[in-house]
Amino acid sequence: MIKYIDIIGFNGKRCDMKNNKKTSKDINLDEDWEDFIKEEGLIDYNKIPVQKAEIKGWVQIAFWFLRIYILVMIIMVIIGFSRIK
């Protein structure tokens, strides 16, 4: 399989050898694993619903402006394309 996990060939290896005061051996991922997963956002976001935004105030005005803008542009596009010979 071409796609695989390769911890051994990790990019930071050269950094390890050069100038580290603290190496990977000092990091206890057994204890920090949950924090690591949480901090790095390594969860299935498809399973977490996103709350729909409440459309009110200036957001509502922005949406109306967008509708009008799209309508005006579509009319202009139709006129423009109708003139193409």
């Binding site: 990790f10 930071g12 005061k21 603290k22 990977s24 990091i27 790095e40």
Partner: peptide, 21 residues
């Protein structure tokens, strides 16, 4: 899982000090 492998490297790199790191 595959992204986590890459992020693990970043996580480990972040623990290090110095300009080169």
């Amino acid at each position: 899982k595959l992204r986590a492998a890459d992020r693990l490297k970043i996580h480990l790199m972040r623990q290090k000090y110095g300009y080169f790191s």
